[in-house]
Design a protein around this nucleic acid. Sequence first.
DNA 1: CCATAGATTGACT
DNA 2: GTCAATCTATGGA
Length: 200
Amino acid sequence: MGAPYPARRRLLRNFFARPTLEVAPDLLGHIIVVRTTRTLLAARLVEVEAYLGVGEDPASHAQRGETPRNLQMFETPGRLYVYFTYGMHHCMNVVCESEGRAGAVLLRAGEPLAGESLMARRRGRKGLDLANGPAKLCQALGIDRRHDGLDLVTGPVGIWPGTPPDAIERSSRVGIRQGTDLLFRFFDPSSPHISPGPPS
DNA sequence: CCATAGATTGACT
DNA sequence: GTCAATCTATGGA
């Protein structure tokens, strides 16, 4: 049996206030927790991608500097950066680096641990199709632009310590046209909850 | 299994 | 006007 959930206390500022490429793999195995008035939702992170700062990463929203949309990428580490895309989907990132320096980790997939019935209702799907993609994860957890800028250290959404995977693999990032040579996608190769699109 | 098309808003050039 | 850090349905091998 694993440790009871949730384990102790959530991750603190110092976890996020590091280089994005260090935080990204370290997030795997930790648990995102969303407190709603009625329900506790939780998912173990199994797939993430790093996006770097100004002039550092051609695929990053921050590549060309600060705009109203990507503002949170430049803000205090430990905040959420949530954006809307393809006219209908949301994706959520964890902000890294120090304030003023952009960097964020896209949360791409999770293994549901609590609140699965609510996730299934929101998704209209079951089983392995609840949170195995960045927009699916947001839909399952109820994350949208209202959550942009929320502080993971003090707010209703947090990340709690979990068990790191036995192994971590990396690959190029999914769905981008530039920066495909950079191996900034990190995932737990033993998890059936990683997103279906890319090869493993 | 794989490939492809369509959805549908808003941020940015 | 262009096109996106995606998902789903559908059609074919």
